[in-house]
Amino acid sequence: MALFAAARQGRKDDAELGRGVWRRAHDRFRRGLDRFHQILEGVQDERLHAELVPIANSLADLLPRVRALCANAQRIAPSDGLDVPSSNAAYLSDVHRALSRAGNALATTAEAVAMARLDGGNAAASGTSDPASLAIESVERRADTVAASVEEAERLLDDSDR
Score class of each variant (00 low, 15 high):
Leu3Pro: 00
Ala6Glu: 03
Arg8Trp: 09
Gln9Val: 11
Gly10Asn: 04
Arg11Cys: 06
Asp14Trp: 02
Arg19Met: 08
Gly20Ala: 00
Arg23Lys: 15
Arg24Cys: 02
Ala25Tyr: 04
Ala25Ser: 15
His26Arg: 01
His26Leu: 01
Arg31Met: 05
His37Val: 10
Glu41Tyr: 12
Gly42Ala: 07
Arg47Trp: 07
Arg47Thr: 14
Leu48Asp: 00
Pro54Tyr: 06
Pro54Trp: 03
Asn57Cys: 06
Ser58Ala: 05
Leu59Gln: 02
Leu59Thr: 11
Ala60Asn: 03
Ala60Gly: 08
Asp61Met: 12
Leu62His: 07
Leu62Ser: 12
Leu62Arg: 12
Leu63Gly: 00
Pro64Lys: 08
Val66His: 07
Ala68Tyr: 02
Ala73Ser: 07
Ala73Thr: 06
Arg75Gln: 12
Leu82Arg: 14
Asp83Val: 13
Pro85Lys: 05
Ala89Asn: 09
Ala89Glu: 05
Leu92Pro: 00
Asp94Glu: 04
Asp94Met: 04
Val95Cys: 08
His96Leu: 07
His96Lys: 10
Arg97Pro: 06
Gly103Thr: 08
Ala105Trp: 09
Ala107Pro: 04
Ala107Tyr: 10
Thr108Gln: 13
Thr108Leu: 12
Thr109Asp: 01
Thr109Phe: 03
Glu111Thr: 15
Glu111Ala: 14
Ala114Phe: 06
Leu118Lys: 14
Leu118Tyr: 12
Leu118Thr: 15
Ala124Leu: 03
Ala124Lys: 09
Ala125Asp: 07
Gly127Glu: 02
Thr128Asn: 02
Ser129Thr: 12
Asp130Cys: 07
Val139Met: 10
Arg141Gly: 13
Asp144Arg: 15
Thr145Tyr: 07
Val150Phe: 09
Leu156Ser: 01
Leu157Asp: 10
Ser160Gln: 02
Arg162Asn: 12
